[in-house]
Design a protein around this nucleic acid. Structure first.
Lengths: 251, 251
DNA sequence: GTACATTGCGTCAGAATAACACATTAATGA
DNA sequence: TCATTAATGTGTTATTCTGACGCAATGTAC
């Protein structure tokens, strides 16, 4: 895989990569899709290189799709990272030898890489983490338990979540993170988990329904302890409209 | 200049550039600093390449500083642009010949460039547009009268303004765009110009003073028609604090 | 049945917002 | 000189939004 790219490195944008922060929601936890590649002792964000004949957005979709199998989901560029030494230590001499990378090819690989960060919101239940190769592990890891990551991936992850938190105030969230039918308490848990703070049930209900993107279904969730909560779904059209126009006007 | 870079192109990040949207405010108009280089018939955003030994943020500061002479101002990355054909037509055969660029060097220049967009807010009165060379023109142009730009620079400019409009709701603005002493009507005009809509004087005053970043001075603006407006200045400490913590909490 | 946790719905005071009225100030020109 | 004009400074009021909370309804566990 890496060798294929290096052998055809003229087909890829040099010194430029894409890293995706893929968020999912399950068991009332915010999850992040991380990968661990052969020989590495740290986890990393799924990433990839940019073919010279692809828009960067298209390359990001490729990265997302290759790891999750889904497409047509919420994917948004949020920042570009380019500190001088950010990948200085990534491919050390031993690693290059291990992968039998020739010196000339290694130069292409070890230069400073600037990486474009994208974050994605996906429906956890629809994703089957998809290792790119035999020696790659792909896993959902709870955000609060994300271990040490390679390079500046922790910084990238933090920035992605910061961006998501800010954008929560500008757009509706949930369509891409929840199954088709869901309950208000579930949606609230999603918000609480992302924001990492408690919200008042009753005020949340009022605010979220006032947006006008929810359809109350004639069903209740079954097999639950305590009172069965109502099921809701998103009104796709209105959701898209609000997504486009934004929530708060401010000034 | 360009030749210097090409002759030492191994010192620059390949296929990667920086473009700055530099906003200023003067005569109740939102101005953008644009440049026109030798032989070009269209204007462009000030931009530059990225030395391999500089953080991308540092490279952006260099671009801004080289064109405006100021530093320590508001400068923020907002998006990265990388459509496949974005600079296909930029250096055509004739132009390359005109600049006497060798074929090998031309390859470095004509590949797809991904560009990182930054926007800056600067005090118009402190800026002396600074052409990088004899054949370069640097000028403040009113936003509404910006002519056709090269490449996708119009898209970059639009995105910068969109970002600024959104961020108006998240942070205070004005410190970097106005002189030290200013009036509330001036500040309001700034907001109105950026948002491109009228605001109510009285409501604006209330909202802006409630933020707690303004200091009312014991001075009135002199030499003005009609009633002399009060002068204000920003309380730097409180301004910085609000900048860091944000304005609207939302959820 | 009773205790308990959770959901659904409602209330209320205070804050924020939008729309608007009126007095004040300084240059202008009849 | 003095009314006119076009701005600025300072309210007021009705409405909406927000945060904090009460209480009844529902379904499980014992």
């Amino acid at each position: 895989m890496l060798k294929d790219i290096l052998d055809n490195n003229e087909n890829y944008q040099p010194g430029l990569s894409i890293d995706c922060v893929i968020f999912g929601f399950h068991d009332n936890q915010l999850k992040v899709l991380l990968i661990k590649v052969e020989r590495a002792n740290k986890w990393s964000l799924p990433g990839g290189f940019i073919p010279v004949d692809q828009d960067i957005d298209a390359a990001a979709i490729t990265v997302l799709n290759s790891r999750t199998g889904v497409d047509g989901v919420f994917l948004r560029q949020f920042a570009t990272f380019g500190k001088v030494n950010r990948n200085d230590q990534h491919f050390d001499k031993k690693t290059l030898e291990y992968f039998q990378i020739e010196e000339e090819k290694a130069k292409w690989l070890t230069r400073r890489f600037v990486t474009i960060g994208y974050y994605a919101l996906v429906d956890f239940s629809k994703i089957h983490p998809n290792p790119a190769g035999r020696f790659e592990v792909v896993e959902w890891i709870e955000h609060k338990e994300v271990p040490e990551l390679i390079l500046d991936h922790r910084e990238i992850l933090d920035k992605a979540l910061d961006t998501l938190r800010i954008e929560l105030n500008l757009m509706p969230i949930g369509y891409n993170l929840l199954p088709e039918k869901f309950t208000i308490p579930e949606l609230q848990k999603l918000y609480e988990t992302i924001l990492d703070k408690k919200l008042d049930r009753r005020n949340f209900l009022r605010k979220i329904t006032n947006i006008g993107i929810l359809t109350k279904l004639d069903e209740k969730k079954s097999n639950v302890a305590h009172k069965a909560p109502n099921l809701y779904s998103f009104d796709k059209d209105k959701y898209e409209e609000v997504l486009k126009n934004g929530l708060n006007q401010g000034w």
